[in-house]
Design a protein around this nucleic acid. Structure first.
Length: 203
DNA sequence: CCCGTGATTTAT
DNA sequence: TAAATCACGGGG
């Protein structure tokens, strides 16, 4: 069962936490690729210096982030990597959650074919760029509606968020330029899971 | 450590 | 028009 619209129409921190443990699915050429979400980052729109929508900047790229919760926001990073984000909150509230790692569960062979450099299954989706490649995410997915798309969606594996003790909150990766926002605990990982992009700092 | 890669944004 | 920037990953 897909996460409903109301799941996404909440603040980014709540959605980022609740996405942990849910299942990302992309059907490619009739074959399912799927994995359990292990790592997310919240981007808070207007005030967040690390967000593309800082000060609610509305550009050709960021217009997608102003859409309704449950919309995919995909952009190309460093000329190579397709980043998959989920727009959250309401229309005109430009906030999003970046998916940074999943534990692959279905379509492993197809993922390996698209990630020839991965040495093992654990390295297939342990980073936002790796995840994009393993799931064959491309720019044309930008703006896709996760409720309506026949091929790209998130399945709810559990009605409630993981209990707080199973979630580690820590600073986001790769946003050192963002001043005071660089240190805020807006990255969320499943505690102790080996499949994340960067091991969170020790408590 | 260092660098490829190209869309997007910002500066002239 | 040109330059700088960048939610990264792979190889030394």
């Amino acid at each position: 069962m897909r996460c409903p619209r109301t799941f996404y129409r909440r603040d980014p921190v709540t959605v980022a936490r609740h996405l942990l443990g849910q299942r990302l699915v992309h059907v490619v050429d009739g074959q399912r690729r799927a994995g359990i979400i292990l790592e997310t980052e919240a981007y808070l729109g207007h005030d967040d210096q690390a967000a593309h929508t800082y000060q609610s900047r509305r550009t050709a790229r960021t217009q997608t982030v102003f859409k309704d919760g449950g919309t995919a926001y995909v952009y190309l990073n460093y000329g190579i990597h397709h980043m998959l984000n989920i727009v959250v909150d309401r229309v005109d509230q430009p906030q999003a959650v970046l998916l940074r790692a999943v534990e692959p569960t279905e379509g492993l062979d197809a993922m390996r074919a698209d990630r020839p450099k991965a040495k093992n299954n654990r390295g297939l989706c342990s980073g936002p760029g790796k995840l994009g490649a393993a799931f064959a995410i491309q720019r044309h997915h930008d703006g896709a509606d996760l409720m309506e798309s026949p091929t790209l969606f998130i399945e709810q594996t559990q009605p409630k968020a993981l209990e707080p003790a199973k979630i580690v909150a820590c600073p986001r990766i790769g946003v050192d330029y963002a001043g005071p926002w660089a240190a805020k605990p807006l990255r969320f990982v499943i505690r102790g899971h080996p499949g994340v992009s960067v091991k969170p700092p020790a408590p």
